[in-house]
Every structure is written in structure tokens, then in C-alpha cells.
């Protein structure tokens, strides 16, 4: 069942494409009913206004040449940060070192155990900015260091992401704004590590674990979105980043669930698959069905093979022989590249 909104969105996009290509406005008869004509025309006017007032500007050829030379000089004196990922991929045991919080926690644990206190109970409820918070982090690092597989890391890190989010919620109820931003940053960093663990998962990973992680991330998005109105302004940027990251990580899990290998699935179909996964997940989290959440969950049917294949793309596909000259980089809409094999049905 295709909704009225999706039909209008499709019509609007076609009309917009004509406008951007400088062609005449589409005939009213192609826009559907009188109501649809009025709506599409009104939205096109808004688009035209935005376009007129925000003219695009390309960089000057002088800037491109000078900047390219500067950039090449800079990167010749540095190296891509692949070492961190490689060491992580080697696994916690083979790394041969422990992160510093582990040593801190180990030292504190020794002292505290000697004094008869339970480290876990002492630090469990702490929040960023609390004196014992590093102990809590250290204990987590120890557990992580004792995990021997990517799946084990992922299970722990998913728990830690839940914990970080809970800390954010608790801090949101206080006036500790700096700690709140730190808490959101901690959540963001934990998701970085979740992403990292996802990348290291073997191809035959248990789908139940991925489903669990995806469901958790969906809940995180909903929780974070609900916090938007409650957080102070200085925390909004960190919140936006956290929301975006949780959604991206969720999509990443969706891709992994469907991913069979580069030769098995054309790149374009991954998104459709991801969307299917999101749709299933959306059923479990009604808040994500709001118009502001990913609208793709109910709109994939509109995408046609013919449309996908006729659109020029900026993509990873090999460049054709008509490659633009180095000093004159084409605008995206001018870039003539072969269309991707992005067939969606």
C-alpha cells in the first residue's frame, strides 16, 4: 500500500528535478489531483526560494590547486591511523598491553579490597564527574580485556552503551551541564567501540545477538530523542551527535544482518535490506514511526530500477575515461559516471 505522502514525495522529486535542470515546470496533469497540484507547486516555490537565497558556490581553481599541494605535503609527513584498528583487530590478549584505566582500576581495587570495601558497590552508581567514576570505567575495561572474542566484546559494549545512556538520563535531571556533555561524549565513544566490535564480528555471527544490539540501539534513539527538549542548549550538539550515532550504528547492524559479501549483494540492495530490518524494528518501537524518524521504512516501494539507473552519481564506481581534469572538478550533477548497480525492487 503506497501512502499519499509517498506518492506526493515522488511527484515532487520529479518536478524538482525538472526545475533543477532548468526545464519547464511540469504540466498540472502530471501532478495528479487538484489538491496534489497545489501542494507540489507550493513546495516547489519554497524550494525555489531556498535555492535563490542560498546560491551554491564552487571553490576557485587557484584555491583547489594550492590546497591540493598543501594537503599532499601534509599527508606525506603523516600516516593514516590504521595502527589503532589493526591492534584492536588483533584482539585484547594479543595487544600485549592494557589500557591505562585498567591499571588505575587494578590499583584502586587492590587498595579498596584491602580496606574491605566492595569496589563494585562503591562505584556502580557513579556518574561522569564523580570521584569514583574512573573506577567504574576501569572495572569495565578489565571485563573487556578478559573477553576473548568480538562477540564477547560486543555483548559487553552493548551493556556499557546502555549504562552510558542511563548516566545521561540521570545527569539530565541535574544541573551538572558539563558532566552531561561528558556523559553524552562517553556514550558516543562507547558507540565507536560498538562499531569497532561490529566490524570485527565474523561473517557467521549469531543473528540473535545482532537483533539484540539493534533493538537496544533503537531504544537508545527513542530515549535520546525524548531528551531533546529537556537538555540545555550547550548539550544539544553532543545530543545530536549521539542521536545520529545511535541511528548510524543501528543501520550498520542492519547491514551486517543482511550482508553476504561484496559479490553477493549489489551495493544498492543493502539499503533496502537495512530498511527492512528497520521496519521490523520500528514495529517494536512506535516512537520511531514519527515523521521525524527515518522515513525510508515505508517508502522503498517507490524506488524503481529505471530511475536508479538513469541518475548520474557521485559514487565509488570506477571513473569512466572522461575523467575531469584535476583543476576542474565537476559539480555533482555534472559528474558523468556510470550508474551504480543499485537495483531496488
Amino acid at each position: 500500500m503506497i501512502s499519499k505522502e509517498r506518492i506526493q514525495a515522488d511527484i515532487l522529486d520529479r518536478a524538482l528535478q525538472r526545475m533543477l535542470e532548468g526545464r519547464a515546470a511540469p504540466e498540472d496533469t502530471t501532478l495528479g489531483t487538484a489538491g496534489a497540484v497545489s501542494e507540489v507547486r507550493s513546495l516547489l516555490e519554497t524550494a525555489t526560494r531556498a535555492r535563490e537565497l542560498f546560491p551554491g558556490r564552487s571553490p576557485s581553481p587557484e584555491y583547489v590547486a594550492a590546497s591540493a599541494a598543501r594537503l599532499e605535503r601534509r599527508i606525506k609527513t603523516s600516516a593514516p591511523q590504521t595502527a589503532r584498528r589493526e591492534s584492536r583487530a588483533a584482539g585484547p590478549i594479543r595487544r600485549g598491553w592494557l589500557p591505562s584505566p585498567v591499571w588505575i582500576a587494578a590499583a584502586v581495587m587492590t587498595v579498596m579490597c584491602a580496606s574491605g570495601l566492595s569496589v563494585t558497590s562503591a562505584s556502580a552508581g557513579t556518574l561522569p564527574g564523580d570521584t569514583l567514576y574512573p573506577v567504574k570505567q576501569g572495572v569495565e575495561e578489565i571485563s573487556l580485556a578478559l573477553s576473548f572474542s568480538a562477540a564477547g566484546d560486543l555483548a559487553l559494549l552493548a551493556d556499557y552503551a546502555d549504562e552510558r545512556l542511563e548516566e545521561v538520563e540521570q545527569l539530565a535531571a541535574t544541573d551538572r551541564e558539563a558532566d552531561l556533555v561528558r556523559g553524552l561524549d562517553n556514550y558516543d565513544k562507547t558507540l565507536d567501540r560498538v562499531d569497532d566490535a561490529l566490524d570485527r564480528l565474523p561473517p557467521d555471527s549469531a543473528s540473535a545477538q545482532l537483533e539484540d544490539v539493534q533493538a537496544r540501539l533503537a531504544r537508545h534513539s527513542v530515549t535520546l530523542l525524548a531528551l531533546r527538549d529537556r537538555l540545555p542548549e550547550q548539550a544539544q550538539a553532543a545530543l545530536d551527535r549521539a542521536i545520529e550515532h545511535s541511528q548510524k550504528s543501528k543501520e550498520r547492524v542492519g547491514k551486517l544482518q543482511k550482508y553476504q559479501g561484496p559479490e553477493d549483494i549489489p551495493p544498492g540492495q543493502e539499503k533496502k535490506s537495512t530498511e527492512d530490518a528497520s521496519s521490523k524494528n520500528d514495529a517494536a518501537s512506535p516512537a520511531e514511526k514519527s515523521p521525524d524518524s527515518d522515513p525510508g521504512a515505508d517508502s522503498a516501494e517507490l524506488t524503481t530500477t529505471s530511475e536508479a539507473s538513469k541518475t548520474p552519481r557521485l559514487s565509488k564506481t570506477p571513473k569512466p575515461s572522461k575523467t575531469p581534469q584535476p583543476t576542474k572538478t565537476p559539480k555533482p550533477e555534472e559528474t558523468e559516471k556510470p550508474p551504480k548497480d543499485k537495483t531496488k525492487t
Binding site: E5, R6, A9, D10, L12, D13, Q17, K248, E251, K271, K272, E275, D294, P295, G296, A297, D298, S299, A300, E301, L302, T303, E307, A308, T311, P312, R313, L314, S315, P332, E333, P339, K340, K342, K344
Partner: peptide, 18 residues
């Protein structure tokens, strides 16, 4: 193009249009 926007925003083309 919608297809590029979709790639950049990690959405499908249909989702991008909506």
C-alpha cells in the same frame, strides 16, 4: 541527484524523497 543524497545520508532514494 536524489541517488547521491541518498548515499550521503545513508538512506534509500525513496526515503530521501519522503
Amino acid at each position: 541527484p536524489t541517488s547521491v543524497v541518498a548515499d550521503w545520508m545513508n538512506l534509500t532514494e525513496g526515503a530521501t524523497r519522503v
